[in-house]
């Protein structure tokens, strides 16, 4: 049976059930590599233990280790890939400004608000060609809803370029989950007042796209 290591935080948690439904023929292992605890740990200078292809000892699970060589796929779900960390509100943004905001080299690794996305830097290096990135669902909070659509499109384009340069597979959320402002339709919100986390219907739709992508790539990438 093929093995997938699902890495992330709350979005991975929300997707856990749908993952079981969409990937029943895989051995699915979850590793909490994002979430607030890991973010604080990383900001405080915490770094993964890396020995060969074995990684672990993050802020959330100091005694947990995984050998990336054991997995056919390593999938990052979300992992602080949030345009609202880069731009908020309705101000129009020129191409030149957007280019400066999203330099291909590292904009998803070193992001505003002191995010060092170590997992995105280290894991693909240890497991080349086997990693896949799913962006965070585009939050329907007002501040991101107001951001010009063009800027959000550019963010995703640059994220795709970033992944291509690192041989990371990139799967954006299905267009059917987005409204005309290019944020996630509210019917997918997990609960009232939470504009970030999405429900099972959303994740099933997204994971179906991921499954199609993986199947299209062949069992052995």
């Amino acid at each position: 049976m093929k093995k997938i290591l699902w890495c992330g935080g709350s979005h991975a948690g929300n997707a856990k059930g749908p993952i079981g439904a969409i990937f029943p023929d895989f051995e699915n292992t979850f590793y909490i590599t994002a979430g607030p605890t890991n973010l604080r740990w990383s900001r405080d200078g915490g770094r993964y233990s890396v020995k060969g292809s074995i990684v672990g000892a993050n802020g959330r699970s100091p005694s947990e280790f995984h050998d990336l060589a054991d997995y056919d796929r390593i999938v990052f779900i979300g992992h602080w890939i949030q345009p609202q960390r880069f731009m908020k509100g309705p101000a129009p943004l020129s191409d030149a400004v957007l280019d400066e905001m999203f330099p291909e080299a590292d904009f998803l690794i070193n992001s505003p608000t002191k995010i060092y996305n170590e997992v995105l830097e280290v894991f693909p290096r240890l497991a080349p060609g086997r990693c896949v990135l799913l962006c965070d669902p585009l939050s329907n909070m007002l501040e991101l809803t107001q951001v010009p659509v063009r800027a959000k499109v550019r963010f995703l384009e640059k994220a795709a370029e970033f992944c291509a340069a690192r041989r990371i597979g990139f799967v954006s959320q299905p267009e059917t989950t987005l409204n005309t402002k290019m944020v996630t339709k509210r019917k997918f919100n997990r609960r009232d007042g939470d504009f970030i986390h999405m429900n099972d219907r959303f994740w099933k739709s997204y994971l179906k796209k991921v499954r199609d992508y993986m199947d299209g790539q062949g069992a052995n990438p």
Partner: peptide, 14 residues
């Protein structure tokens, strides 16, 4: 607020 929501989701799932 976002942190609390994220922690809740993690607890719920894992």
């Amino acid at each position: 607020k976002e942190d609390v929501q994220c922690e809740e989701a993690l607890l719920e799932a894992f």
